[in-house]
């Protein structure tokens, strides 16, 4: 399993318009191409998860995630905001790089945990935050995943 297999170019936004955490979550959910009702339900679920504790893991990275019936397979998206967004992260620093992970409750291949783990592992690589800041195209994002072998 490779992370690059889960990312589509359409689900990568290197210049988020969002200024707040809520706006960022909505913008990322918008990258998944769901209908309006599903987007609303998914946003609520992500908010509920954030209310339990921030998914900002530090080093300018956040990984909002949840399971939801509104998706029929594991979906991921990536968004970047160079100027940063307050995400109430563990290290209290603003977040620049946001990985969204959503999976259905019933998942035959059970990819949710491995994908979550791999993205967390990727985010902890020393050079990753800086390299994520430098990429200029969605294709370069995919290339970075490949380069890191995740």
């Amino acid at each position: 399993m490779q992370l690059r297999d889960f990312f589509t170019l359409e689900a990568i936004n290197l210049d988020l318009a969002a200024e707040t955490k809520d706006e960022a979550l909505k913008e990322l959910v918008g990258l998944l191409g769901l209908d309006e009702k599903s987007r609303g339900i998914l946003f609520k679920m992500l908010k509920r998860r954030e209310n339990l504790g921030s998914t900002g893991i530090g080093r300018r990275i956040a990984i909002p995630h949840c399971r939801s019936l509104v998706v029929n397979r594991l979906r991921v998206a990536f968004g970047r905001k160079i100027s940063g967004i307050d995400f109430d992260a563990i290290d209290k620093k603003s977040v620049q790089h946001i990985f969204l992970i959503v999976a259905p409750p019933l998942e035959v291949s059970n990819q949710y945990l491995p994908v979550l783990g791999r993205i967390a592992q990727f985010g902890k690589e020393p050079d990753v935050p800086e390299r994520l800041t430098q990429i200029e195209t969605p294709e370069e994002f995919i290339a970075l995943l490949e380069d890191k072998g995740v």
């Binding site: 509920r48 399971r67 409750p105």
Partner: peptide
Amino acid sequence: ELQDMHAQ
């Protein structure tokens, strides 16, 4: 919503 919360 309830079902998703049960999943969580």
